[in-house]
Design a protein around this nucleic acid. Structure first.
Lengths: 201, 201
DNA sequence: GTCGTTCTAGAATACATATTCTAATACGAC
DNA sequence: GTCGTATTAGAATATGTATTCTAGAACGAC
């Protein structure tokens, strides 16, 4: 019953994603999204109560995809080699999702959701922080035998900050991260998390 | 002659900087800046022709400060130890300029200057890219004996991307980067740029 | 003191954007 | 075919922001 939808949530979110990737969140105005989609602005409001909700959901989906994969592969990592695999998989995600990577790595949450999360998403948002945090903590305990703050900080740097910092340049340039980056990040990982002086034979 | 100024360019830029650091570039509206300063909006236009010009100049100044210091200390680096010193100095800059660091590291140029640079600043802007680029290239030649793209990519990662990625977390949190970060970044540097298997000994 | 000039003050304007509203449509159920 | 309804369509509205404009104020020169 009722007229069949011509523009679904998926389509709308997709149009917004393309705009964000190409010209940043500020460019994703309701009229720009509508135009990108060939729809009137009114139709968008049949699917999303507000622009904020639309962008918030878009952001959330991308973060969940990225972080979900990373947390999963980190949960499987039982040692440094496993961690190296997790980093490689993160790069794999970026290579496989260049558009989403631009949204995620080139912009901040605040540019999508200024202030607090809309009520409809607080629960999903609340699940995000602990997921990554506990994945890291467990990994530290398991692979390094210690989940104290110093170890945690090391792991955060080697598994998150350095990889993200390293890959951002390529995402920004619209290029695929080169294979060499995998190697650089693995070296970094071993230098930071590896046994202190294993090199001495 | 003429009425003495009550609000100078310096004051205005300072107010804008505080707003950007605290709530992002979008929050630095002309009225917000005026309010932060206790001035009417009109006065701002006596100093800056437009909001775009104001923000562009602010951004430019911070980038010049940051990059100038980095390029200088990189120019002095004659080997890996020198590079490590340069990285430490970069962290020093961040520690000494926490507000400016927030502007620089937490936001993108596009959030300040959408599109091309205003005419008044194209020259200054044009000088920025080559400065860093040639500093890196010279360093590679001098310290690594090779300025090919692979070496350059390594140096960019070890000297720019990894440090920036690592420090951003603390800047975001409004905290000083801990001393441990210096150590992590130095390890990274040596792992990425150092002689391949020096460890065997 | 008067004049010329540089500035403060803040109201008025122009414009862009999110959101709402009213009407028209296209389909399934009957 | 008629009815009910979810949807398209796009004009109308409300709000926020950059910018401009008009007065008036404060100083130095003379």
């Amino acid at each position: 019953m009722g007229r069949p939808p011509k523009f679904g949530r998926r389509d709308i979110a997709g149009a917004a994603l393309r705009l964000v990737a190409a010209r940043g969140p500020a460019a994703a105005t309701m009229s720009a999204i509508a135009q990108e989609l060939g729809a009137p602005t009114g139709s968008i409001y049949h699917r999303f109560a507000s622009r904020e909700l639309l962008l918030a959901e878009l952001w959330m989906e991308v973060v969940e995809s990225f972080q979900g994969e990373l947390a999963t592969s980190l949960a499987e990592a039982r040692d440094i080699d496993g961690a190296a695999r997790a980093v490689r998989r993160m790069l794999g995600w970026v290579r496989a999702h260049p558009i989403e990577a631009r949204l995620l790595l080139l912009h901040r949450r605040e540019d999508f959701v200024p202030g607090d999360w809309p009520d409809a998403l607080v629960e999903r948002a609340a699940a995000l922080e602990p997921q990554m945090g506990s994945a890291l903590r467990r990994f530290c305990k398991r692979a390094l035998g210690d989940a104290g703050e110093p170890s945690l900080a090391r792991a955060r740097f080697a598994l998150l900050d350095a990889p993200i910092g390293g890959v951002k340049r390529y995402v920004q340039a619209g290029k695929q991260p080169p294979p060499m980056l995998d190697e650089l990040l693995e070296r970094t990982l071993r230098a930071v998390l590896g046994p202190a002086q294993r090199g001495a034979r």
